[in-house]
Amino acid sequence: MKTIATLTMNPTIDVSYDVAKMRHTHKMRTDNEWYAPGGGGINVARVFVRLGGNARCYYLSGGATGPALDGLIDLHQLVRTRIAIAGPTRIASAVLERETAKEYRFTPQGPRIAEPEWRECLDRLAETDCDIMVLSGSLPPGVPDDFYARVIRILRPRGIEIVLDSSGEALAHGINAGSLLLVKPSQGELQQYAGHKLTSRGAISKAAMAIVEAGKARLVAVTMGAEGAVLAREEGAIFLSALKIDAASAVGAGDSFTAGMLYQLCRGDNEVAAFRFGIAAGSAAVLRAGTGLAHPADIDRLLKLTPPL
């Protein structure tokens, strides 16, 4: 079983709670309050470890809220390497309105990172010992757009494979650095990278295959929400429709997909089987309101409902 490490440059303390009805100005009493460590890489590690794998979390943490994030990561029994920063770790909120079953999500931009802080992160990553590094999530203010590309250039010569899940310029620079094991954009993120509208499954498959054919990634998995997902690989692109379930939350669905697919790849499964497992994991994440992410029992149950490929 291969080991992974994850990098979260802009982590969060994820807070979720329920209200009877959203009303402006009025004080709204909440219940079902829940706190969890969040951010792309941390979410991937939570699900990966939950499934039985080994993962180390690299992340930035600071300010008055930094120790709270550190403590939450410890509660989830994740191995961690903290890079200290001056700015406060952000707090993201997800509020479920029971009257409408709609979820409202509030996500701050995050602290500004000074150059010595992000350079220290590069130095720490240069010492990492893992088989696969997952670069996941947005870059906070102050970090250069090509940061993930710099990480890739440091780690690939050491034989460490790279999984990339980001957006905007950070995603573009990372893809263009090349030689990636897996890229997992959403439909919107791939559209932004391609520079034109992707309004059909065929257009999405073509754009994903272009990345594979250019040698920039072995696998490109494009998540399309309730529509399903596309997997591009050397043999061509395949599509799998989403499971018909009642979604309670959208928090961490993409991260759960990445963790599930990667876990199966680390076990030695082929990419098609791993893709099916990723679909089940992403679907499992949305079953529960809040920040719970995917759970193995839900994944196993939904995997049985996922059509074969």
Rank of each mutant, 00 (worst) to 15 (best):
M1K: 07
I4Y: 01
T6R: 05
M9S: 09
K21P: 00
R23S: 12
T25S: 08
G41V: 01
V47S: 09
L51P: 02
L51I: 04
G52L: 11
G53A: 13
R56I: 15
L60R: 07
A64N: 05
I73K: 06
D74G: 13
D74E: 15
H76V: 06
V79D: 15
R80K: 15
I83G: 01
G87W: 02
K102A: 10
E103A: 14
E103T: 15
Q109V: 14
E117A: 08
L125Y: 00
E127M: 08
S136Y: 02
G142Q: 04
F147C: 12
A149L: 04
R158S: 13
I160V: 15
I160P: 00
I162M: 13
L164R: 08
L164K: 08
D165L: 04
G168N: 11
A170Q: 01
G174A: 15
G178N: 08
S179Q: 15
L180G: 03
L180M: 04
K184E: 06
Q187V: 03
L190E: 11
G195W: 09
K197R: 15
L198D: 11
R201C: 01
R201N: 12
A208T: 06
A214V: 03
V220H: 11
V222C: 06
M224L: 15
L231K: 07
A232Q: 06
E234N: 10
I245R: 10
A248K: 14
G254H: 07
T258F: 00
M261A: 11
L262F: 03
R267N: 15
G278N: 13
A285T: 02
V286S: 02
G290W: 00
T291K: 02
L293T: 08
A297R: 06
D298P: 03
R301G: 00
L302A: 05
L305G: 00
T306K: 00
